[in-house]
Design a protein around this nucleic acid. Structure first.
Lengths: 218, 218
DNA sequence: CATACTGACGAATCATCATTAGCCTGTGCT
DNA sequence: AGCACAGGCTAATGATGATTCGTCAGTATG
């Protein structure tokens, strides 16, 4: 560790992690501006001024939370795409991963979705870019499915957004210990994503069958 | 008009409308806290102190914007439910109305979805209650469809949220003059909503047919 | 004309809040 | 022991922002 490292260059410490976690919780609950450094400090059992021994600034805290969220989602998505070549299965697994992340990290994603305007530039632009890349990655997948004749949708973009937004909502309502477990929710959302693009599912006995399955009620 | 009416009790005036519109735009773009009264004032061509001749406070502005949005959505939903008795058609039309509102009033709904934490109590609780009622109204519709054997879904609540959130996203990406017009978008979302609940569509020739259509790829 | 009201302005107020600076204590190292 | 450092505290700083207050000008009314 360099002698003059600033807090933001220091690896995680228990204190920093506590501060980060408290910030996530309070930002999600009260909003960025509705949360003062005094509130965060109190949550970790110290005074506001002492936070600056561990973090650069309130803005840095917010930025790091949001960048970490997007980075994880992007990584997860890339990782999932590599687990199979089948576009429908890729979509299903992508949806499941997306939903699982939202179920496990509801507060982070709520902050990430709601507090973009609270970020100063250039961080705001950076986050927007990361989000654009994430959506574009999904859209490319759906376009591949369309090109392969596996998905049927009027617009890859419309489907992309519908699917992503549908999954984002999980962070708002899912509760561990509720009627549906995380895996069930992920499963249903995977199913629903395929329905939204009217995916022809890969089935062993359907290797040479016509691909079109039609819409519900079609 | 009573001699001692406060601004919030006065009916709309051009000035008040201008202020409201400017607030919607700026709140959506910069966030509630990222928007100062000076910014709103400048947008309508006056000084911040003069705004108080027309509005009670910044909080009142925010509250009114958010209440009006929810009230309209609730009214629209109720109105649509009365246009038909068929649950699938009700769902389709509800979705179309929901999406149309989001397409036409993107900024209002963005503010409504993002700035809940910026509201002081008791307004915050009131808005949450309105949102809960809206979701509950949709869930009741889906439960009716399930009870009638017309919809098939593991959870009415899960489907409700998936559908609502999917539609909310329209406010983020839809642009008038884009590749898809508002009616097309509404149509596709109506379709997708039915697919999400695996609705047995009413078709003249399917009166006696088995209702199950199965999931995509089923 | 005189009066009352509306609404625009500038200046000021007051509260809040992120952050800095200086001090102190405990710990580890030589 | 002495020294350096980390990290906790109090007090203070400086900026920001919502709102109030007083003034003035324009307009309408009797």
């Amino acid at each position: 560790m360099p002698a003059h490292a600033t807090p933001s260059e220091v690896s995680a410490t228990p204190r920093r992690d506590d501060i980060r976690a408290a910030a996530v919780r309070l930002f999600a609950e009260r909003g960025y501006y509705g949360t003062g450094m005094r509130d965060i400090a109190e949550a970790v059992g110290m005074r506001a001024s002492s936070l600056y021994n561990h973090v650069d600034s309130k803005q840095t805290l917010l930025r790091e939370i949001m960048v970490a969220t997007m980075a994880t989602l992007l990584d997860e998505h890339e990782r999932v795409l590599r687990t199979t070549d089948d576009c429908a299965e890729q979509l299903r697994r992508s949806m499941e991963a997306h939903v699982r992340y939202h179920a496990r990290h509801p507060l982070e994603v709520q902050v990430g979705n709601r507090e973009i305007a609270s970020l100063d530039e250039p961080a705001r632009g950076e986050i927007r870019e990361l989000r654009r890349r994430y959506a574009q990655s999904w859209q490319a997948l759906i376009e591949r499915g369309i090109a392969e004749g596996r998905f049927e949708t009027a617009s890859a973009q419309l489907s992309t957004y519908a699917i992503l937004e549908m999954g984002i909502g999980v962070s708002l309502w899912y509760r561990e210990g509720g009627p549906l477990g995380e895996s069930e929710v992920a499963y249903h959302y995977g199913d629903m994503a395929l329905r939204l693009v009217q995916a022809a599912a890969p089935r062993p006995r359907r290797r040479a069958a016509p691909r079109s399955r039609g819409a519900a009620g079609a």
